[in-house]
Amino acid sequence: MGGLFTDAAEVRRRLDAVGHLVDDGTATALYLATVLHRPLLIEGEPGVGKTSTAKALAETLGTPLIRLQCYEGLSASEALYEWNYQRQLLAIRLTEARAERLTDADLFTEEFLQDRPLLRAVRYDGPLPPVLLIDEIDRADDEFEALLFEFLGEAAITVPELGTFAAARPPLVILTSNRSRELHDALRRRCLYHWIDFPAPERVVEILRRTVPGAGDPLIASAAEFIGRARRLELDKAPGMAEAIDWLSALSALDVSRLARGDIVRTLSTVAKSADDLVAVTEALDDLGYPKAVAP
């Protein structure tokens, strides 16, 4: 895997070529993950581009993206592997019809094994390793993390009935977390770590220009400035880049060329994601530089 990129600058250039802008820190973290053959844990506020970074990496390399979306109650059978019980039952019935007998060893073979995302990533045999995205690991239960230790540390998964499957080419593993809960130290020790912050104002403008090409520069600049100011309010969910892109797309679709208070009010649902935040942003419009028009 060390030959995927020559340096962090190449990572940045190639991601840029597929429309994904990253800073030097993120490019370096991705480069080190490929060189050191280590999973990369990316944390940051929702909407700053953690998931899209993994998607862009897969697109850049021309390799599959295998995604495991985490949630409360996620089980080993959904993440690692499970047995195809219907095929096993069919095999038993066919054998009985022939007056033969199956043993457990006959039923628990690779023929009946169903790969789930982690085992699929381990057994992938393409020319380049796949990108495995373990998305929002903080949403899974604490106990689920323990299931990942062997995989994260050794790029291997043990199936008790068959033995251990080890990756010929360790997958590029990216875990994301919104920090809704603390992750175990044992998981963190197995990963490199990177924090993605909300981009600097000039990078926000560049990202918006790339993702919403139909918007004019005056609208992009004012939208970026507004989002930056709104993030300083005491909101339940501060708007991230995802909200900024959605908002600018909505304004562009409405043929807005220069931002005005009325445009903000009618599109605010793309920025604020709760009733309280809608009220908070609306009440702050005067302070944000968009006061009500004064009647003559």
Rank of each mutant, 00 (worst) to 15 (best):
E10K: 01
R13Q: 12
R14E: 02
L15T: 01
L15S: 01
V18P: 01
A29H: 03
Y31E: 08
Y31V: 07
L41C: 03
L41Q: 06
G47Y: 09
V48Q: 03
K55Q: 12
A58P: 09
L68G: 06
L68H: 04
G73I: 11
A76G: 09
A76T: 11
R87I: 12
Q88H: 03
E96F: 12
A105R: 12
F112K: 03
R123D: 00
L133C: 01
I134Q: 02
I134E: 02
D142N: 15
F144P: 03
E145T: 14
F149I: 13
V159E: 11
P160W: 05
A166I: 11
A168I: 14
N178K: 05
R181D: 08
L183Y: 09
R190S: 07
W195G: 14
P199M: 07
E206R: 14
L208T: 05
L208Y: 06
R209V: 07
R210G: 08
L219T: 03
A230E: 02
L235M: 01
A238Q: 14
A244M: 04
L251F: 04
S252F: 12
L259Y: 07
R261F: 05
D263P: 08
I264C: 06
V265Q: 08
T267I: 03
K273Y: 01
S274E: 00
A275M: 09
D276Q: 13
T282I: 07
T282Q: 11
T282N: 08
E283W: 06
D287T: 14
D287F: 06
P291M: 10
A295F: 13
